[in-house]
Write a protein that binds this DNA or RNA. Structure first.
Lengths: 262, 262
DNA sequence: TAGTGGTCTAGACCACCAG
DNA sequence: TGGTGGTCTAGACCACTAA
């Protein structure tokens, strides 16, 4: 039993600190197992409640995950690179799903996606960006992309109904040549994009849809596509789990790199 | 006492759900106060431990903050727009601190910053981006920007020592014309930038330096500046609290917007 | 000084799943 | 079926601060 100083710092914080140090140091590696609650109770001479408080700290920091009834484990990060520029502007490049598909397959894993199309009154963030009036509807293509059957990110694309009504954008199928191309054919070619990125904790619904562990924030990527006339014709809400994504943006003249892309 | 169904869903989750609904609905507005723990104990007929479990859920979602001994309050978000493009490429625009200063002052608030310069072996993320060998040192300018005396973000800029040795970049003062300009004068003009953005929970050190409440993730923005020869001459680690920042990036031809900038 | 949330104890029963 | 973590009870003492 390693003695805990009776400083002002709460006991559960001291326990959390020692475990955190063991994780960032060489004590417990990625995917490594932490001591059981019972072991910690004995080691520190405290009750289970206190031990659980310490573990909750690490869980909420995203360092540790509890996999009942196996125990607590150190989380491993695995970042896929997300390139909003590639993904979005190129009307004549490969469409987004193709690139996702290819880059995942390159790693020997299996990509998939679900598509669901509907007509809705969009949330405020979207309505504002599309300059819709209160109550005005839009077409939305909701996608969940998965890798090896596990959800990876959420991609909801909204289009003003007046523009896409009757086109294949409102059909619940993948659009092989890309929705951007279809918009262009309808006379609404996008020439500019505005990206908004915010970081927050997921909503319960997002946590459920993306099967996020506690302590995992999301990056929400709002994208607005404008025509040459400055009219917004597309607004996307992309929800990217922080433990699976990094966003890469290049500006000006940069040397080539060697990362996988999504 | 409102009855709780005895479904499989844990009681503390049901309490958290009801409080969350009250917050997202019209029940409790921003800065509004939640019932006290004692009130919740009575209302739901459970012990304080269970009530505290429910409140912890909301705190870790970033929805609620405990301000002892006043009570629990609904958090308010206040986003400042961060524009990595403006901030960084323009060798001949206003330097970053100037823009931060101006946009904060425009809101009638008081900006400030601390600068601290030292020679260090940089962390892995930086060393890799600067293509330094193991153990090689770099000059770092560490800044904490504050608004009304409260820390707002962390901005640590690293430069290869071989390049900036003896220049004013290694002096602990603000550089009025901008560090980019100085680099250019030294013959290392940047013509390209690579931005990496990741979202994660803060480290204990970051939580302390930025005075973050529980449930607040950070966006970490890594920036690498390259010369025309493709040589990295600057690597920045920017830590942006998720409850205070949104990142804005524009690509191609977009209509003007009306936001404050940082 | 009264009331708030923060910490900690000592116990109980449960669901789940690898052995 | 044994051991894991998940949930919940019933209490205690404490530090802080607004009234």
């Amino acid at each position: 039993m390693s003695a805990l100083r009776r400083t002002s710092r709460p006991v559960y914080q001291q326990i959390a600190d020692e475990l955190r140090d063991a994780i960032s140091g060489d004590g417990i590696g990625p995917d490594g197992r932490l001591p059981t609650e019972a072991e910690l109770v004995e080691r520190y001479g405290v009750t289970r409640g206190t031990v659980r408080q310490a573990l909750a700290v690490l869980v909420n920091e995203g360092l540790v995950v509890s996999d009942r009834p196996r125990g607590y484990f150190v989380r491993r990060r695995r970042h896929m690179t997300y390139r909003p520029q590639q993904e979005l502007l190129v009307t004549d490049g490969a469409p987004a799903m193709d690139r996702f598909h290819r880059s995942v397959a390159e790693e020997g894993r299996t990509p998939s996606q679900t598509i669901d199309v509907s007509i809705v009154v969009p949330p405020r963030e979207i309505a504002t960006r599309l300059r819709l009036n209160a109550g005005e509807t839009a077409a939305v293509r909701r996608r969940v992309r998965s890798i090896d059957g596990e959800p990876f990110n959420i991609n909801d694309s909204y289009y003003p109904l007046s523009i896409v009504q009757g086109s294949e954008i409102v059909l619940p199928h993948d659009i092989a040549r890309g929705a951007n191309r279809v918009l262009a054919e309808l006379g609404h070619r996008q020439v500019g994009l505005r990206h908004h990125l915010i970081s927050r904790m997921p909503t319960p619904s997002e946590r459920h849809r993306l099967q996020l562990s506690p302590g995992t924030p999301v990056t929400v990527h709002y994208l607005t596509g404008y025509t040459a006339e400055g009219i917004p014709v597309r607004a996307v809400e992309n929800v990217l789990p922080g433990d699976r994504h990094e966003v890469l943006i290049e500006d000006g003249q940069v040397p080539p790199d060697n990362e996988s892309s999504t």
